[in-house]
Amino acid sequence: MFSGYDFDVIQRSAGYLFRDGMTFTLTLTALAMVGGIFFGTLLAMMRLSKFRLLSLAAGGYVNLMRSLPLVLVIFWFFFLVPYIGAWIIGAKDPVKVGSFLSCLITFTMFEAAYYCEIMRAGIQSIARGQVWAGYALGLNYWHTMGRIVLPQAFRNMLPVLLTQTIILFQDTSLVYVISATDFLGAASKVANRDYRLVEMYTFVAVVYFIMSYGLSTLVKSLQSRIAIIR
């Protein structure tokens, strides 16, 4: 039944698919995860702040990001970032921003909203007494957060953070809308060039499935190990 298909195209294009495409996808995922968790944690701290202005600003940002479709945000940032960059440095012409950098900024800012909600739940899961104990010892807000609350919140939320990262890994494929060459984008280019759409998209699906499923299995085993430690 596969007589009409040419699966050799996969082997022929594997170098391009993985060296260019998958590298783009994984680098973007990893950096957006690190940036997203960093800014997400800051946002979570702001949302839980007793200063109303901070919590309102962070809440507004998170709600805005979570109410917009990702594709729209990718588009929007791709066309807007050059102008924002120009405005920041005071240049006349739009700044040239590569598609990778544009994607990275977009995903970091978008995912920060989701990581924020995870970290917020994590921070709130830490008993109030822990904060009291930190303050009672004379530790200030930053030390109490950095050494007592966040490490525990992070550990409690690790499985959820990783699950969100798997979603991020899949979502990075949406960068095809700005013609960036991620794994899907690379495959799509080969598919169209050689007219091997079924073969390439099937292969892409299999690879995404294996990687995502493998990662989520890992998360599950991690989850049960954390449960034992606790």
Binding site: A127, G129, Q130, W132, A133, A136, R147, I148, P151, Q152, R155
Partner: peptide, 11 residues
């Protein structure tokens, strides 16, 4: 200060 639930840092 010493608390009812000890509040040692578990990590």
């Amino acid at each position: 200060m010493v608390f009812q639930n000890f509040e040692l840092f578990p990590h």
